[in-house]
Computed example of a mutant assay.
Amino acid sequence: MDTKPYWTTRDVALSVHRSFRMVGLFSHGFLAGCAVWNIIVIYVLADQLSNLSNLLQQYKTLAYPFQSLLYLLLALSTVSAFDRIDFAKISVAIRNFLALDPTAFASFLYVAALTLSLSQQMTSDRIHLYTPSSVNGSLWAAGNEKQVLQPWILVNLVLAILVGLSWLFLSYRPGMDLSEELMFSSEVEEYPDKGINASS
Rank of each mutant, 00 (worst) to 15 (best):
residue 16 V to H: 04
residue 125 D to P: 05
residue 7 W to A: 15
residue 82 F to N: 02
residue 63 A to L: 10
residue 96 N to V: 03
residue 45 L to E: 07
residue 19 S to V: 06
residue 152 W to T: 06
residue 117 S to C: 13
residue 65 P to W: 09
residue 155 V to A: 03
residue 90 I to C: 03
residue 157 L to K: 06
residue 178 L to E: 04
residue 179 S to L: 10
residue 147 Q to R: 08
residue 137 G to K: 07
residue 136 N to I: 09
residue 111 V to F: 02
residue 95 R to T: 02
residue 36 V to F: 15
residue 150 Q to N: 14
residue 171 S to H: 08
residue 13 A to Q: 11
residue 164 G to R: 12
residue 91 S to G: 00
residue 4 K to D: 12
residue 99 A to T: 00
residue 96 N to P: 00
residue 199 S to K: 15
residue 40 I to Y: 15
residue 145 E to P: 04
residue 11 D to W: 12
residue 149 L to C: 11
residue 63 A to D: 14
residue 147 Q to S: 04
residue 127 I to A: 05
residue 167 W to R: 04
residue 70 L to V: 07
residue 194 K to P: 00
residue 148 V to T: 08
residue 69 L to I: 11
residue 123 T to K: 07
residue 16 V to R: 07
residue 137 G to E: 04
residue 110 Y to G: 00
residue 110 Y to N: 01
residue 162 L to M: 11
residue 59 Y to Q: 07
residue 70 L to Y: 10
residue 47 D to Y: 08
residue 50 S to C: 15
residue 88 A to W: 03
residue 178 L to H: 08
residue 7 W to I: 15
residue 176 M to N: 01
residue 62 L to D: 10
residue 151 P to D: 12
residue 128 H to M: 07
residue 138 S to L: 06
residue 171 S to Y: 06
residue 65 P to C: 13
residue 127 I to P: 01
residue 190 E to Q: 03
residue 127 I to M: 09
residue 195 G to A: 12
residue 10 R to C: 07
residue 38 N to G: 01
residue 27 S to Y: 04
residue 119 S to H: 15
residue 94 I to W: 01
residue 130 Y to S: 10
residue 60 K to H: 14
residue 174 P to V: 04
residue 66 F to P: 08
residue 153 I to P: 09
residue 55 L to N: 09
residue 64 Y to K: 13
residue 119 S to Y: 13
residue 5 P to V: 13
residue 73 L to K: 10
residue 127 I to F: 06
residue 5 P to I: 13
residue 102 P to L: 01
residue 6 Y to I: 12
residue 113 A to K: 03
residue 127 I to T: 08
residue 57 Q to P: 06
residue 118 L to F: 07
residue 173 R to T: 01
residue 134 S to D: 09
residue 169 F to V: 04
residue 8 T to Q: 11
residue 88 A to R: 05
residue 35 A to H: 05
residue 133 S to G: 07
residue 73 L to H: 12
residue 170 L to V: 02
residue 128 H to W: 12
residue 43 Y to I: 13
residue 18 R to E: 07
residue 157 L to F: 07
residue 85 I to L: 05
residue 59 Y to S: 06
residue 101 D to P: 01
